[in-house]
Amino acid sequence: MSPFAEYAIAFLLLLGGAFTLIGAIGLARLPDFFTRLHGPTKATTLGVGAIMLSSVIYFSARGEGIGISEVLITVFLFMTAPVSANILAKAAMHIGVRTMDGTEGKPWEQ
């Protein structure tokens, strides 16, 4: 395996792990539900995407061809993350989850 591929794989792995961890930290420590929604939808999705990319590079550098499954999983995750965030936000608004002090504006009722 070429050293360049090794550096790229290691870098992508660490980046992905860091983003996944940061998304989880956001989920654990942000103050209310709507702010917590931001961590997983963005950071975690990108983190898993980076880990997938490193897997693609790893297996193609070993000469096993380009993994279509990884690409499919990544595309699927990027497509579903906003949908689940949206539907969860709707559910939270319906239940009337408490928002943190200092939130400007209000979720509407209809």
């Binding site: 792995l13 997983p40 995750l77 989850v97």
Partner: peptide, 30 residues
């Protein structure tokens, strides 16, 4: 609240996917 728990489960399965991919790289299998 209930939505918090659902969100936690949602993130948990995405993390499980990441762990499975990492396991695949560790064992060198697809």
């Amino acid at each position: 609240d209930a939505p918090d728990r659902v969100l936690a489960l949602d993130t948990l399965y995405i993390n499980a996917i990441a762990l499975i991919i990492l396991l695949g790289i560790t064992l060198g299998t697809r």
